[in-house]
Design a protein around this nucleic acid. Structure first.
Length: 504
RNA sequence: GGCGGCAUAGCCAAGUGGCUAAGGCAGCGGUCUGCAAAACCGUUAUUCACCGCUUCGAAUCCGGUUGCCGCCUCCA
């Protein structure tokens, strides 16, 4: 095929006929035939409420932002689902060959962070610094890529004020009693993203209304007048409108735009904060620049517990730390969070965690069997297995990250490889190809472990001794050694070709 | 009340007009084995909440009913 393409380059016109040794499927799907202009990847865009082909603004670098955590307390599983999904998107774009600049905003200057710092008896800056590093640690546990920029609200107040200045100048924002509000009546399509009809929104219920004077109850806060307590602690910014603190919506909009520019590709957030948060971020960007800040708005759905949204106010939250304490590994928690479609609610239950754990363990055991395999003559099907995995996985993920279908392809691959592997059919070359294909899929999923498990000298000696005992039919002694190894966390498996082991 | 979403096996979950309704977990049977475990092979929904409509054909479209969930408010 390559030869034919090279030949074709030399011709100005003509027809080249290539006879391929198989049905040619694997050639036709390669880059050689890819229409460079058209993407095969589709995302459900909340803005248009349909799946759209993804067209980056600049093909050389995709820019994406994720609504970050408010770090007054360690984020719970519901929040982490969003970050894991964002990470999945970034990783899949990477798998597709794109370079991605990803930012996750750290919301560390809110009523909550101030209140929690107070409760913890810590100075606000110190408190949020600790909370932020704890968040980073847990993100690492969940194998979220670390090449994300994490702009912090309290370090970027200037950018926020600049944005407000622009909004006031253009008439989209107004000051009232030393707070600055966004005037949503100035935007004719406010509410379109979240499909909210403001005439039908029950007004008068916003708690801010008691505290603040706005022209319209639906206008949202950009800069919030500081309280006396905040002033005393020095948590305020001096502006020409008064001593204030930026709002969550403003912080998010400003941070993304500062890092990524006025218009970027993807805005990832949660279905529960479309209104008002995403709507307000969109409004701010649009008012400031005349264009929506992002082209694709992707929202992850909720994590549920016994049919209810996981949230602090319901008192049903679960943290990464508590699951780790229960013996679950980060990769298993990650698997649980990404193993069903991101636009569907995900129900948490102990059983679901157990399923995730078992599944990840099985995948890893499969990998260990590949690593510790006994080489054979070679299996002609290996190439096809690998091709089907890569192709099937990409096809599924291309369809708005259809993870269930993608995982089905992966498990189908495992099943097909298992039988030849068990009868030692693969050559070393086959095996390496199979492992490479798995690694490639795992560059997206990030739930598998490829490190070779090794035995300590003591365990190796015991296994050797036990084999000797078995050869001389000293079953009882052999069983005792087996029990002892089990205590050491090593499971013994006697097969027709000898004894193998795995770590528990 | 307004807007939106969901309902598929024991559990989780794809499929959204036509090939046997993917896959995972759990279970069960078999092969192997000194026993065991693992592995491998096989197996588990005549049916997709309910009623009706359209169609040659519906889990999939349309209408209705029921149940659940989210946002409109704290949480995020």
């Amino acid at each position: 095929m390559h030869v034919a393409v090279e030949k074709a380059k030399e011709l100005s016109e003509g027809l080249i006929v290539v006879i391929l040794p198989d049905s040619a499927e694997r050639y036709l799907s390669t880059e050689l035939f890819a229409d460079k202009e058209k993407s095969t990847l589709r995302f459900y865009n909340v803005r248009t409420r349909q799946k759209e082909f993804f067209q980056p603004i600049r093909a050389e670098e995709i820019r994406m932002t994720s609504s970050g955590p408010s770090i007054h307390l360690v984020p719970h599983l519901g929040s982490y689902r969003r970050f894991v999904v964002s990470d999945l998107i970034v990783r899949y774009l990477g798998f597709k060959g794109y370079k991605v600049k990803h930012t996750t905003n750290i919301v560390d200057l809110t009523d909550k962070t101030i209140a929690e710092a107070e409760r913890a008896g810590l100075e606000h800056g110190e408190f949020t610094k600790r909370a932020f590093s704890e968040f980073l640690r847990e993100a690492g546990t969940l194998r979220i890529r670390n090449d994300v920029s994490y702009p912090r609200a309290q370090e970027n107040v200037e950018a926020m004020l600049g944005l407000v200045e622009k909004l006031v100048e253009k008439g989209y924002a107004y000051e009232k009693l030393r707070s600055v509000y966004f005037d949503i009546s100035k935007l004719d399509d406010y509410g379109k993203l979240s499909n909210v009809d403001l005439d039908k929104v029950k007004s008068g219920k916003t708690p801010e209304l008691d505290e603040y004077e706005k022209d319209s109850p639906v206008d949202f806060t950009l800069l919030k007048r500081s309280t006396l307590a905040e002033l005393k602690k020095g948590i305020y910014v001096k502006t020409r409108w008064g001593n204030v603190r930026p709002s969550w919506h403003l912080a998010c909009a400003a941070l993304s735009m500062k890092i990524l520019g006025d218009t970027f590709d993807i805005h990832a957030s949660g279905s529960d904060i479309v209104f008002p948060h995403c709507e307000n971020v969109l409004a701010i960007g649009k008012a400031a620049t005349g264009k929506p800040p992002a082209n694709y708005w992707i929202n992850t759905d909720l994590v549920m517990v016994e049919g209810k949204k996981m949230s602090r106010s319901l008192g049903n939250i679960l943290t990464v730390a508590s699951l780790v304490e229960q013996g679950y590994r980060g990769s298993e928690i990650r698997y649980f969070l990404l193993s069903s479609h991101y636009r569907k609610p995900l129900n948490f239950s102990p059983g679901a965690m157990e399923t995730a754990k078992n599944t990840v363990e099985k995948l890893n055991e499969f990998i260990q069997r590949l690593i510790h395999f006994a080489p054979g003559a070679g299996c002609p099907d290996a190439d096809q297995f690998v091709y089907d995995l890569r192709h099937g996985f990409a096809e599924a993920m291309d369809d708005d990250l259809n993870i269930s279908a993608a995982l089905a392809v992966l498990f189908g691959f495992v099943k097909r490889v298992s039988a030849p592997l068990a009868r030692n059919a693969f050559s070393e070359k086959d095996r390496d190809k199979i492992l490479d294909a798995l690694k490639s899929v795992d560059s997206v999923l990030a739930v598998m472990d490829f490190e070779e498990e090794r035995l300590g000298g003591e365990a190796q000696r015991l296994i050797e001794e036990r084999s000797q005992m078995r050869r001389t039919r000293r079953w009882k002694e052999a069983d005792e050694v087996r029990d002892r190894l089990l205590e050491m966390g090593i499971v013994i498996q006697d097969g027709p070709t000898g004894t193998t082991w795995k770590k528990k």
